[in-house]
Nucleic acid binder design. Structure first.
Lengths: 222, 222
DNA sequence: AAATATTTTTAGCCTAACCTAAAAATAAAA
DNA sequence: TTTTATTTTTAGGTTAGGCTAAAAATATTT
């Protein structure tokens, strides 16, 4: 399957490049990559040379980096495995959605024939992970979904929570307290012009969300 | 839980020391350890110094090494995780017993709060892995079982396959061909004095096993 | 007990993945 | 277009975990 053997460190860099390029299309700059990896620019440059030699990225000095076909495939497989494992941890082992990221960061690097496919079968081919992020299929194809940020809704509109942009456990735990997990149905009651804070209703309960929360919550309008 | 942070490499050495000491009680010698790890004696010495500094082993130059209390606990936890993951791979993902070792070698190093316990719950607290090896409990306690090598049975005796001593996939696959998986019931029909080869019956099928096979198969006499 | 063989350790080197500090390239401002 | 600021790369160093070859310790023969 994988044409080139890769280390976990290399894989993490590929994933980081993928992630940055996803939000900000075009070449990924060294500093952005270093920041994403929590490392120094010098270390990132170092790794980019290695990845470039292995043909996993296309790297031009001072100009940034993009994933090669192979690099893109490896990154996609990693994300697939990461999200499948998250489904496993939540659906089968009973962890909460804010507890699984670190485990999945490790599990995604487990190598071996057919593991992802067997896991996918076992889990019933889930198409989204516990945070609402899409899981690419075995061919690396993505599903795009009709969802918008809660911040784009206007008073009177209703929506169902489909995902989060911020995956931090503090944010996820805050959502738990608000009963704003995946699938929660809400109605936007009013938005304050001053700071864009937003009053919503979930079942019978009303809550006020900051602009930041609304920007990090994805909903499907109903 | 773990008092000392450990790398995968360190953990593998601890496991190797445990494994050797299990068969050959007493201090483990550098060469034996290096052989088990598939590395050089120099590298083993190197690692023993590191492990000794971390107080995971008691190491005396030229005299061999034993696990400290902590080291023993880490090794036991690793074996527990290894075997639990093997159960998962076979029972839940549908892998064959000869396919799971390499996966489990990786999975056993996954770190994190409660993972083993949740997995154990999910699997229904299995006490033996797919090869019949006992799984220590969360406190690190082992279950010992009344089993003997098939080579110790005499004609007329019957037994149920409970485990293997050789875990190689070639051996396991050979057992598959003979329908000699865990739980198989057999009767010893006759043993040739010349080379100790043994004729057995499984259901209606008769097979002849070499001495080597009989020495690597554990059975419970019935 | 001395000589020889074996085992273990030390010494010195390598690579991956990090680091800091300095140099070089590019971008922005004057 | 210089000068200044920012970004990126290079240079040189560290650590973990390997290696080989040589030295030292232990064990075995003679």
């Amino acid at each position: 399957m994988n044409t080139v053997p890769t280390t976990s460190a290399e894989e993490n860099y590929l994933k980081a490049i993928f992630k940055i390029a996803e939000k900000e299309p075009g070449a990924v700059l060294t500093n952005a990559l270093a920041a994403e990896m929590g490392t120094s620019a010098a270390s990132a440059t170092d790794m980019l040379k290695r990845l470039s030699e292995k043909q996993l990225v296309v790297y031009e000095k001072y100009r940034g980096v993009t994933l090669s076909e192979t690099g893109n495939r490896i990154a996609t497989d990693l994300i697939r495995k990461h999200r499948l494992w998250e489904v496993f941890l939540v659906d089968k082992l009973g962890f909460a959605w804010d507890e699984v990221h670190e485990f999945a960061e490790q599990l995604e690097h487990i190598q071996g024939e057919n593991l992802a496919e067997r896991l996918d079968d076992f889990l019933g081919h889930p198409r989204f992970d516990p945070h609402g992020d899409p899981i690419p299929d075995a061919q690396g194809h993505w599903l795009r979904r009709a969802q918008v940020r809660l911040s784009t809704l206007t008073p009177g509109q209703r929506g169902i929570v489909t995902g989060v942009d911020d995956h931090s456990s503090t944010f996820l735990q805050y959502l738990n307290e608000l009963s704003l997990g995946l699938g929660a149905e809400l109605e936007l009651l009013e938005r304050t012009a001053y700071d864009q804070s937003t009053k919503i209703r979930i079942r019978t309960r009303e809550s006020v969300l900051s602009e930041k929360v609304c920007q990090n919550l994805f909903v499907r309008i109903i």
